[in-house]
């Protein structure tokens, strides 16, 4: 299963991130994870959200430059060695990680690690064979622990 990561191109100046989060708030989009990488004067905001298609469209409506790509969201154990298991596996299979970040699902139980890899299909197969669970966009939306708060 693949998940979708949204990337927003933004100049590195005050107010750009606030614009993105403001639009998502207004659209009642829940952010699962966010990372920011910056270079000389500009940056890319990466987002995992509960409804990537809709999030993309409302961000674009506000004039932002957005791209969407497939990433793998792997469920790992939230304990020492949980991430290592996954990374060693990818290393063994010679899969290179372009970008990665994680968030906790249930404290000390489960976490999700998002990896952007160069060989998407192979990665999915490797994870499947190793019995690791991956989440798709729908699952990422459904795992919302405070789901009932959505109105």
């Amino acid at each position: 299963m693949v998940a979708y990561q949204l990337s927003v191109f933004a100049e590195n100046k005050p107010g750009r991130l606030a614009k993105v989060t403001g639009i998502l708030k207004k659209g009642k989009i829940n952010i699962r994870a966010i990372t920011i990488s910056t270079s000389d004067g500009f940056g890319v905001i990466n987002l995992i959200v509960d409804d990537p298609e809709r999030a993309r469209s409302i961000l674009e409506d506000e004039g932002l430059t957005v791209s969407m790509k497939e990433v793998v969201a792997v469920v790992i154990e939230d304990k020492p060695g949980g991430l290592d298991k996954l990374i060693q596996l990818l290393f063994d299979e010679d899969i290179n990680v372009e970008n990665a970040y994680g968030f906790v699902l249930e404290s000390r139980e489960k976490a999700v690690f998002v990896v952007d890899v160069n060989q998407l299909e192979k990665t999915q197969k490797v994870l499947e064979d190793a019995g690791l669970k991956t989440l798709d966009a729908q699952a990422l939306s459904a795992i919302e622990p405070f789901h009932y708060m959505k109105y």
């Binding site: 990337s7 270079s39 000389d40 890319v44 990466n46």
Partner: peptide, 18 residues
């Protein structure tokens, strides 16, 4: 200004363009 279609979410690509 960067061309909208050019942006793929990859910071490296932007850095190379710059």
């Amino acid at each position: 200004e960067v061309q909208k279609e050019f942006f793929s979410g990859d910071l490296k690509q932007l850095e190379n363009l710059r």
